[in-house]
Structure formats: structure tokens, C-alpha cells
């Protein structure tokens, strides 16, 4: 059997990995109930049931709950009051804005992982070692990563001490409005690029070596090789990494945020999941539900738009 068994093979050979081809139109009446037609449903049924009961249903409960009040208004229908309150709430506005900032960091992670994977692929000295080491932070929990980087990024921490010793200005990375969220995102990239790197490496291993050799014979330099051979060859992998990185950023920042900035200074590094957490802690669960619904919409819309754009972009290239 010579089936390609790597992720990148999968990703590569499919014109649109993960996106199922449109089901050919089957005339409905002629369909017979046979094991062949039922099995696909049985295969997806457990997943569908679990997601309906434990994701979608709580989501609907939450939407319902978001139209009720808190504390003395507990259980009372208040219409859109919670939503109207949120619209003018500073922390909510900051959370919504920051989702956009987060998305700006997605290409950076993809770029970093892609470049490093390229270097490892061309076997820079020590590439085996790097491949192992870079993945290591993926293993660590955000709690320990946050605790360590609190110290490393501190105003008097090692990073600033180093900067100071070579005459660079020192920055209170986690205590300044402009740097707090970007610092958290940078640490998130540090902590997760190993995963993207591995997916990229899987993609590289399916690249046509003959094409690379041909490029070399034609005298293409390294940037040209990347641009004309590697990127087109990896377009599906890139797309896959984009999607997974986006989802990681949209859903996986709570732990780091919590330990590194706690949303501050002011509301500068608030993110949706953190705001919801805070509101629950302030004994305002219904308001938290409204924020959940609102922000879920934002995340879904942005996420789906991004995926669409990506699909189109990679298809055209």
C-alpha cells in the first residue's frame, strides 16, 4: 500500500482540505434505506449528538438566560437590557476591539512557523535539535508559561535587564496599554508555534523534490525558491495552519491572559472569554450570558469570514 499517510499529504492532495465536496444531488425518492446509506449517518451520529446536547443546547440555554436580569431581577424577563448595557460598557468595547488585534497576530504566527519550518527543511545546522525543542512549550500549561513570563517580562526582569545592558530602553511590557495585549499574544505564539511548525513540516515532506532541484539548477535564489516553489506547493497546508491558529487564538488565550495581565491596564487587554469570566465573578451571570452571545457572534462572523477569504485567496494562487 503506498497511501500517503501524512497530514500534509492529506492537506496537499485535497484541493480544499477539510471542506467536503458538495454532495452530488441524489434524487430524494429513489434513495433506498440500505446499510450503505445509513452507515454514514451512524458514523457521524455520536459526534452530532454530543455536540447538540453539550454544546448547542447549553448555548441556547445561555441565549435564553441572557434576556433575564441579575440579582434582584433574577429570572425576570428584561428584553434586550443586558445587550444595551453592554454596548456602552468600556470593557465590552475593549473586548470586541481586541478580538481584531488578536486576529492580526494570526499571520505572524503562521509566518514564524512557516519560516522556521523552511529552515529546518533545508537542514540548517542543528535542525534535528530545533525540531524537538521548538515543540516543547506546547506541552506546558498556560499557567506555568504565564507565571514564568510574568517574571521574564517584568519591569526589572531578565529581558529588560538585558535590554538595559546594551543600551536599549526598558519597557513594562505587561503594564502598558500599548504593549500588554501584544505581549500576551507574543507569548501565546511562543507557546504554540511548535504545533504549526510540525504541521508545516508534514507539508514539506510531500513537496516535490524534483521541483526544488529544478529550481536550484535554474539558479533560483532562496527567497525565489520560497516564493515560486514552496508557497504554491504548500498552499493547502498554509490554509490549514491559518484555520487552526485562528481557532487557537480565539479560544485558547484565557489561561495566559489570566495569569499575565488580568485584562489590564484598564481594560486594555480584555478579551471576550475573560470578560465573561469576570462578569460571572461579579455575580452578574445573566449579563455574562449576554456578553457570551454577543461575543460568540463576533467570533463566529470573523472566523467564518476569515476562512472564506482564505479559501478564495489560496484557490486563486
Amino acid at each position: 500500500m503506498t497511501a500517503p499517510t501524512s497530514t500534509r499529504a492529506v492537506v496537499l492532495s485535497d484541493p480544499s482540505p477539510g471542506w467536503p465536496r458538495r454532495t452530488p444531488k441524489v434524487p430524494r425518492r429513489k434513495r433506498k434505506i440500505t446499510s450503505e446509506t445509513v452507515t454514514p449517518y451512524l458514523l457521524v451520529l455520536p459526534v452530532l449528538l454530543i455536540l447538540l446536547v453539550f454544546r448547542i443546547y447549553p448555548l441556547l440555554l445561555g441565549i435564553n438566560f441572557s434576556f433575564t436580569g441579575d440579582q434582584e431581577l433574577n429570572g425576570v424577563f428584561v428584553g434586550f437590557d443586558n445587550y444595551l448595557f453592554l454596548l456602552q460598557d468600556e470593557r465590552f468595547q475593549a473586548s470586541a476591539r481586541n478580538v481584531l488585534v488578536v486576529l492580526l497576530f494570526v499571520p505572524i504566527e503562521v509566518l514564524v512557523a512557516g519560516l522556521l519550518a523552511t529552515f529546518i527543511f533545508i537542514k540548517v545546522p542543528g535542525h534535528r535539535f530545533y525540531r524537538s525543542v521548538y515543540f516543547l512549550p506546547v506541552v506546558l500549561s498556560p499557567i506555568i508559561i504565564g507565571a514564568i513570563f510574568n517574571i521574564v517580562l517584568g519591569a526589572n526582569g531578565p529581558l529588560n535587564a538585558m535590554a538595559d545592558s546594551v543600551g536599549l530602553p526598558t519597557v513594562d511590557y505587561l503594564g502598558q496599554t500599548m504593549t500588554a495585549l501584544p505581549s500576551v499574544l507574543a507569548v501565546h505564539i511562543w507557546a504554540t508555534f511548535g504545533m504549526a511548525l510540525v504541521i508545516f513540516l508534514a507539508g514539506f515532506s510531500t513537496l516535490d523534490q524534483q521541483l526544488l532541484d529544478a529550481a536550484k539548477i535554474d539558479g533560483a535564489n532562496f527567497p525565489q525558491t520560497i516564493w515560486h516553489v514552496i508557497i504554491p506547493g504548500l498552499s493547502q497546508t498554509i490554509q490549514f495552519v491559518f484555520v487552526t491558529t485562528t481557532i487557537g487564538m480565539l479560544t485558547g488565550l484565557f489561561g495566559l491572559l489570566y495569569t499575565m495581565t488580568a485584562g489590564g491596564p484598564g481594560a486594555a487587554s480584555y478579551l471576550p472569554e475573560f470578560l465573561i469570566w469576570k462578569l460571572n465573578g461579579e455575580a452578574r451571570p445573566a449579563l455574562a450570558s449576554a456578553a457570551s452571545v454577543f461575543l460568540l457572534l463576533i467570533v463566529l462572523v470573523i472566523g467564518l469570514i476569515q476562512i472564506r477569504v482564505l479559501r478564495r485567496a489560496t484557490k486563486e494562487s
Binding site: 510574568n150 517584568g154 519591569a155 526589572n156 513594562d172 511590557y173 505587561l174 503594564g175 502598558q176 489590564g264
Partner: peptide, 9 residues
């Protein structure tokens, strides 16, 4: 105050 009070717990 000490440096970086906003990032000091």
C-alpha cells in the same frame, strides 16, 4: 513606587 507597578502583583 517601584518600576512596573501595573505589572506587579
Amino acid at each position: 513606587y517601584n518600576d512596573g507597578a501595573n505589572s506587579t502583583a
